[in-house]
Design a protein around this nucleic acid. Structure first.
Lengths: 349, 349
DNA sequence: TGAATTTCCGTGCACGTTCACGGAAAAAAT
DNA sequence: ATTTTTTCCGTGAACGTGCACGGAAATTCA
C-alpha cells in the first residue's frame, strides 16, 4: 500500500469538522462531544489515517529525554559496554527528537542507588532504561515511575514489577546450561571449580544465581557424580583473589574445569597464567576487554557473551518507538542471543 | 551540549544573506557566488548548524525508495532470513520517509540476474542493497549505479568494484578457520569429509571458497597429515545426494568429521540420521529452519551463523543514513559476528 | 426571559525546510 | 550609454501537525 497521503485536514473535511477538533480526539485531550469524537474515530479508521511523524515532531518542537540508570561503568567493566550501546543508540534516536543521558550508581552501595533513583525522578524524564541491581528499591522505583506514567524498560535482569514496557536480557538459566556444555565439550567431567564473588550483604539481587542453577542442572544430567568445588573471592582485591585461588589449587591440584558466572573471570587470569595447564578448560561470561585478551591468549577457553550494548540499544529503541509513535514492543520479554566466543571468532565481535 | 537550536535562518542573519541562499549552499546546487558561499560555510562551521531532519523531510515531501536485490528466497532458504531483516528494517525507516522493496533473481540463472538488474535500474531507485552472486554482472551493475550516482551497499559477499558505499558480511576466511576449530574441538583429526555443491558453470562467484581456504589452513596448522575427502552433491536432488553420501561412506566407513561450507547442510541430514553415530561431529553454516531443527536433534553439532537479517538491516540503515542525513558509514567494510550455534543456545537466536 | 456558565469547536500562527519564481546587480554586448 | 545576457539572491508559499486563543452554541441558573 502507498504511504498514507491523507492528513488530519482530510479527516476534518470528511467529518465536516475542523483540524483542531480532529487533533483533539487524536490526542484525546477532551473538549470534544461524544458524537464528534465517534465521527472522527470512524473516519480515521475508515481512511487509514496515519500521523506524519515529521510534521508532528516539528510542530511540537520539544524533545523527549530518556535516562539510562546503570551501575557506574568502571573502566573496562561490563557496564562500559552498556554505555557504548547507549551512545550508539543516542546517535540514531537523537535526530528523531530524543535526548539520552546516563545516571550511574555504585552497584555495591544501596545508598548510592537510592540517590540515583531520586535524581532520575527529579529530572522528570519521559522514559527510563533501568538495570536493576537492588530488587526492592528497583521495584519501588518502578512503582513510582508507573505512578507518574513514565514508561520504563529493563535490561540485564528483571524485577517482579509488572509495569515495565519491555525487558531485554539474557536467559539466565539457559546460559548456565550452555556454559556446562561448553566447559565439558560434551564429555563427562569429574571435578569442577566454581569461582564466585563474595556475597555482599547489601546486594539483594544476584543475577548469576540463575546461571548457576542451569549449570548445576547440566552437571546433574550429563556428569552425574561430578564433584563441585566452590570458592569465594573478593570482587576486586588481587591479593586476596590470588591467595584464595592458590589455596583451592593446593587442595585440588588436578582441577581441569573452572567456571565463573559473572564478568570478572579476568581477575583470576594472573593466577591461571602462573599455573599453565594446556588441558585446563576455563569458561566465563561477557566480552570485557580483559576477558577478550585472555581469550586470545588461550588462558580462557570460552566466553559467553550477551551483547550488553545491543541490550540497551534495543531498550532505547523500544522506548523511542513508544514515545514517538506510541507503539508498544511486540513482546515484553526479549532475550538476546547467548554468544559463544572463542579465540577464533572474537576478533569480529 | 544542547541540541543545535540554530536554524538556517540564524545562519542567514549572521551572514547577512537570506535563507534561500543558505539553503543553496547547503545542498550546493549552485547559483551562489564564491564569496557568499564561503561566508555561509564558515558560519555553519562556526555556529555548528545542524539541519532539522523533520523540517527537511516534511518540506521535501517526496519519499526515497531503496531496493534490495537478492536471490529468490525459496521457502526456508538462506535468503528468507535476509528478507526478514529487510522487513524489519523497512518498518524502522518507513516512518522516516524511506520505502523498501525487493527484487529477486534465480541465483543459478545468470539471465534472470540480468533481467533483475534492468528492473532495478528502470525503477530509478535512490539506493540499492545488493547481494552479488555473479561477479561480472554485479560489477557492471555497480558501474551503472555509480554512473547514475545511486549509492549501493553490498551484503553477503564483495565484488571488486570500489564504488560501494558499504559492505556487510562475514569474514569468509576466518569463518572457515573457526569452523575447523569447532569441528575438531581442539583435538587432532585424522580424516575429514567436505561436502560440496556441484559447481555450476554459470555461477561465477563462489562465496564458500574463502571458507574452505580458512578451514584447510586450520587443518594444516593443527592437524598435519589429516586426510581430506571431498564429495560433490547436487544442490537439491535428494536422491543424488543420498547416493553420493552412501558412496563416500562405503569407501570410508570411519569418517567422524563432516563439514559443509554453504547453508545446505540440512540436505545430508536424512543420510546422517540413517547412519547414526554418536561419535560423529558435523558442522555447517547458517541458521535455516531445517538446519536448526537438525541441530536441536543433535544430528548437527554446530552451525556457524552470520545473521543475514542483521546484514541487510544494517545495510538499509546505512543507506538511510546516507540518503537522509548524508552521513557515510564509519567504515566501508563491516564484518558481522560469526555466531557459534549449538543445541544449547539456538533457541534464543 | 435574560444572564451566567459550561461545553464545544474553528481560526491562525508557529515549527524549520524546500523550492519555484521573479527581480536586482553585475557583466557582457551593442 | 543603452540594451541584452548572465549571475546571483530574496521572497513567500507550501509541507502536516500542535496548540493557544477566542467565540459560538448549548446548558444551567436566576
Amino acid at each position: 500500500m502507498k504511504q498514507g497521503k491523507i492528513t488530519i485536514i482530510d479527516i476534518a473535511e470528511k467529518t465536516g469538522l475542523s483540524k483542531g477538533t480532529v487533533d483533539r480526539v487524536i490526542h484525546n485531550r477532551g473538549e470534544v462531544s461524544a458524537k464528534s469524537r465517534e465521527k472522527v474515530l470512524k473516519a480515521i479508521r475508515e481512511f487509514g489515517y496515519e500521523p506524519n511523524l515529521h510534521a508532528s515532531l516539528l510542530a511540537s518542537g520539544h524533545r523527549k529525554n530518556v535516562v539510562l540508570l546503570i551501575p557506574s561503568p568502571a573502566s573496562g567493566s561490563f557496564w562500559t559496554l552498556s554505555a557504548e550501546g547507549m551512545k550508539k543508540a543516542a546517535e540514531t534516536v537523537g535526530p528523531l527528537g530524543i535526548d539520552c543521558k546516563t545516571v550511574t550508581y555504585d552497584q555495591y552501595d544501596l545508598a548510592s542507588f537510592r540517590v540515583a533513583c531520586d535524581l532520575v525522578l527529579d529530572s522528570h524524564p519521559d522514559g527510563v532504561v533501568l538495570a536493576p541491581m537492588f530488587h526492592y528499591e528497583s521495584f519501588s522505583l518502578g512503582e513510582r515511575l508507573h505512578a507518574e506514567r513514565i514508561p520504563f524498560v529493563l535490561v540485564d535482569s528483571k524485577i517482579e514489577n509488572k509495569n515495565y514496557l519491555a525487558y531485554f536480557g539474557m536467559q539466565e538459566y539457559a546460559s548456565g546450561y550452555l556454559c556446562g556444555d561448553q566447559l565439558s565439550q560434551g564429555k563427562t567431567m569429574e571435578r569442577v571449580l566454581i569461582v564466585r564473588i563474595s556475597p555482599d550483604r547489601d546486594r539483594q539481587a544476584d543475577p548469576t544465581a540463575g546461571r548457576r542453577t542451569g549449570f548445576l542442572d547440566y552437571l546433574a544430567e550429563h556428569c552425574p557424580g561430578c564433584e563441585v568445588i566452590q570458592t569465594f573471592v573478593h570482587p576486586s582485591d588481587p591479593v586476596q583473589i590470588r591467595q584464595a585461588m592458590e589455596e583451592v589449587y593446593a587442595a585440588h591440584p588436578d582441577i581441569r574445569h573452572i567456571v565463573m558466572f559473572n564478568s570478572r573471570i579476568h581477575r583470576i587470569v594472573p593466577f591461571l597464567e602462573a599455573h599453565p595447564d594446556p588441558q585446563r578448560r576455563v569458561v566465563g561470561f561477557d566480552n570485557l576487554a580483559e576477558n577478550m585478551a585472555a581469550l586470545r591468549k588461550g588462558t580462557i577457553s570460552v566466553l559467553i557473551g550477551q551483547r550488553p550494548g545491543e541490550q540497551v540499544a534495543r531498550a532505547i529503541q523500544a522506548l523511542a518507538d513508544y514515545l514517538l509513535l506510541d507503539k508498544k514492543p511486540a513482546q515484553k520479554d526479549n532475550h538476546v542471543h547467548m554468544d559463544i566466543l572463542t579465540r577464533y571468532n572474537i576478533d569480529y565481535y
